[in-house]
Computed example of a mutant assay.
Amino acid sequence: MLTIGEFSRTCFVTKKTLRHYDDIGLLRPAHVAENGYRYYTVGQIRTMRLILRLKAYGFSLPEIAAHLANPDSTALSQKLVEKQRLMESERDQTERVLRRMEQDIEKLERNVDIMEQNITVTTVEREPQTIFGIRKNISVQDFQELFGELYAAAGKKGLQPLGGPMAFYHDEDFNAEHTDIEVALPVAAGTPGSRELAGGLHACSTLVGPYDSDAFTAIYAGLMQWIDENGYHVANSPFDSYVKGGPEVDPKDYVTEVYFPIAK
Rank of each mutant, 00 (worst) to 15 (best):
L108V: 12
A167V: 00
Y242H: 07
E88H: 12
D171C: 04
F174Y: 11
P251Q: 02
Y57D: 04
D214G: 12
Q160N: 11
H233C: 15
V124W: 07
A215V: 03
E127Y: 04
E248N: 10
R100P: 05
A203M: 03
T74G: 14
R49F: 08
E229D: 09
M87Q: 12
A198F: 05
K16S: 13
K252F: 11
P62T: 03
Y37T: 12
G246H: 04
D173V: 15
M166L: 13
V255D: 00
E90P: 13
G5H: 01
Q44I: 06
A188I: 05
P210C: 04
S60R: 14
L18G: 03
I114N: 05
V258S: 09
K83E: 00
P29M: 07
P192D: 03
I45T: 06
L18D: 01
P128S: 09
T3V: 15
I24H: 09
L162F: 04
N230H: 15
T179D: 00
E63M: 09
E229T: 10
N175Y: 06
N236A: 14
A218N: 07
L18R: 07
R28K: 12
L2A: 08
L76E: 00
A65W: 02
L52S: 15
I219D: 02
E257Q: 10
V97W: 12
V187S: 06
E90I: 15
F59D: 03
K15M: 09
L68Y: 05
G164K: 02
L61I: 09
V32G: 10
K15G: 10
A56N: 06
H67L: 03
T14L: 09
E82P: 13
I119F: 05
S241V: 13
Y151R: 10
G5S: 02
E229H: 15
F143L: 09
S241P: 03
Q117G: 14
E63L: 09
N230S: 11
M87Y: 08
A33S: 13
L68A: 08
T179G: 00
P247A: 05
